[in-house]
């Protein structure tokens, strides 16, 4: 029911406002629709995405937190685990499979105990350490493996674009 989802989202919003994790801001863009949020994620220090502020859209299902939200970066991204249209591919955002023997994979998947904060923190660590085995963007995965300098150059460009600094 949308009522309990709404209450939970409100609680998460409150928590994220009062105790925001470093470099992360998230909340509903327009409170007429509480199920669509925008998040700003700061690129983790010491990585090629350092300093960038990446905007992303989070869309929650009406049975949240039983089903995971969908996350999509609204800026240009170049990363092995982000599709070229900005959708994020991490296991925490995947609904639990009903395969009873797929225990090991389901352990990393969505559960109602997860939260927006945990998702965003996972995305930060994903930005820091791409998983080039499950490539959502094959070009990026390949470049990450084989031509790290070029990858870093592109990341730098993206960072500057998100900050609005002319290249």
């Amino acid at each position: 029911m949308a009522g309990s989802a709404l209450r939970r989202l409100m609680a998460e919003y409150k928590q994220l406002t009062l105790n925001p994790p470093e470099g992360i801001i998230a909340g509903p863009i327009n409170e007429e629709n509480f199920f669509e949020w925008e998040a700003l994620i700061t690129g983790p220090e010491g990585t090629c995405f350092e300093g960038g502020v990446f905007p992303a859209k989070l869309v929650f299902p009406s049975d949240y937190p039983l089903s995971p939200p969908k996350m999509q970066f609204t800026c240009e991204m170049f990363h092995p685990n982000i599709y070229s249209d900005g959708r994020v591919c991490i296991s925490i955002l995947h609904a639990p499979g009903d395969d009873p023997m797929g225990y090991e994979t389901s352990a990393e998947r969505w559960s109602p105990v997860q939260s927006v904060e945990k998702i965003l923190l996972s995305v930060v660590s994903m930005l820091a350490e791409p998983n080039d085995e499950s490539g959502a963007n094959v070009d990026a995965a390949k470049m990450w493996r084989e031509n790290r300098d070029e990858f870093n150059r592109i990341a730098e460009k993206i960072v500057r674009r998100t900050l609005g600094i002319p290249i």
Binding site: P20, I25, N30, G51, V53, L163, G164, I165
Partner: peptide, 21 residues
């Protein structure tokens, strides 16, 4: 709440820009 969120976002972006520069 919407306004505060907007301001916080602007501030984050601004600070990030400043740090970067």
């Amino acid at each position: 709440r919407e306004q505060i969120l907007l301001k916080r976002k602007e501030k984050l972006l601004h600070n990030a820009r400043k740090r970067y520069i």
